[in-house]
Design a protein around this nucleic acid. Sequence first.
RNA 1: GCGCCCUUAGCUCAGCCGGAUAGAGCAUCGGACUUCUAAUCCGACGGUCGCAGGUUCGAAUCCUGCAGGGCGCGCCA
Length: 572
Amino acid sequence: MTDPQLILAERVQQALGTAFGQEYASEDPLIRPSQFADYQANVALSLARRLRRAPREVAQAVADAMDHTDVAVEISGPGFLNMTLSDDWIAAQAVIQLADDRLGVPQAAPKSIVIDYSAPNAAKEMHVGHLRTTIVGDTLVRVHEHVGHDVTRQNHLGDWGTPFGMLIEHLIDIGESEALNRLASGDGNAFYQEARHKFDNDRTFEERSRSRVPLLQGGDPATLRLWREFIEYTKRYFNHVYDVLGVTLTDDHIAGESMYNTMLADVCDELEQSSVAQISEGALCVFPPGFTGRDDRPLPLIIRKSDGGYGYATTDLAAIRYRVRDLKADRILYVVGATQSLHFQMVFAAARMAGWLHDDVSAEHVQIGSVLGADGKMFKTRSGASTKLTELLDEAVSRAEAVIAERGYEPAARREIGRQVGIGAVKYADLSVSHDSEYVFDFDRMLALTGNTGPYLQYAVARIRSIFRRGELDPADFPGPITLGEPAERALALQLLGFGSIVETVAESSEPHRLCNYLFDLAQAFTSFFETCPVLKAEEPVRTSRLALSALTLRVLVQGLDLLGIEVPERM
RNA sequence: GCGCCCUUAGCUCAGCCGGAUAGAGCAUCGGACUUCUAAUCCGACGGUCGCAGGUUCGAAUCCUGCAGGGCGCGCCA
């Protein structure tokens, strides 16, 4: 672990113990980045009262007791401890990081982590909102796997329930092969709307649709065959989108609502027998304490409707039980829209009541903010006419291609770069804002190739690679030593050292945007270095040092972008 | 009515385990390519951190109230 913040924390804690007794050695030293030094410790201010001494006096005592090897400490303001690391120390740590396969990312004690994400609905269009849960979820998967956890992806496909009666009848009406072709080509939304229209306007069709539902749920072979076809072909479309996006989901990760169908009755029985659930107004309900609806009445989680059918609450409870009992989950992440907040709170509460979610398992709703239209209002499926996802991705790619059109690349190379940059831009746009903030859908913003964007990071990588290509050198041949002279070199090296703890933080907090911010800062630090510090033309030993620094930056950026699921072109 | 989320520069957003003059990108303006890719860099401009109290040596950050916006709240998923 190369993170200076941790080393300084240890140093300060040690000094606290020496100066004020061991009971203070575990005090949080409150290390923060500083504008007046590399880092500052604020602990003297918070401790002054308890010690009944002036803050500056406390700071002085800590400074005196501290190991000053490689770190200069000075007291400033009301009692800040400003700490500046020696260039030699930073350089040495960078060399250690460069020699580390993991680039300073700690290996965690492996946990079993289930991540539920993407979950498109087979009965509706896959829109930009699904894009976001898919991209954020996939990044969390990559980060947890990299940190060393055992990750199980669960694509909770919306592949079951009432709408399928209607959809199957429509499929029968227009002919199987015609219908299936349309579904596979991503025309599911129009298909759904046609079915819906008939359902609303054609009495006979409505009746047929309604009577089709029990056939499906009861396992009628002919109905099930059509349903399977329906799912099979929409899966092809989903897989196509995943493939274009470079998302790691495959058919192996599909665990849709239909999978839990056989468990629902048992889930209800268990809850009823343990008195967790009760009959209310004919429906079987769980009333988790602390949830009230209108009129202060207890809010029910309906797990069996009065007509005997099951809703998605039942499915989600079955899924929790399955994930804990069979998948042995220590932690379950639900990368799902923020609008489901209350639902998940209640489902988790019910699962705790049932004892399925016991104290050793955490279930977390990673709330994904709604995608808004240009008018600032939520996108509604019904409003239709929204751009098809594949067309949006195509546009991203062609815009990226247009930018490099005059750089003289071969057509094939240009297409490949355009693909990597265009898709990377879309993914980065989704990842770089906090996952729970609402998202105003904006083509221009999404596809912008300047500023805090994917292309900016990719460009930094391309420029590093260009150095090695021009020099006909292999980055792997430059393990150091590193010496730091210019401020830009020092700033770059210091930034590099923080990689491991950022990755760790993202895993703990489920916040990929922190990694984006870190990488953007790193890319900026490199670009400043690139502008002011010639590498190939530098005299030895500076040349070797700068090549090593470039090699390390290259690896951290590529690794970081890989964790975000973003590919990096050789040239741009 | 209840619950959750949000309100930071003209725009889009970070910062929110309390700490020194609140940051970035875009936009605007001014500079920098005979030198490793200018998709770049350097600088300037720009903010009552929704409002009002409270806790604290110190609040964008924690607590309470209010205003404005969004979402959800018994048989769709």
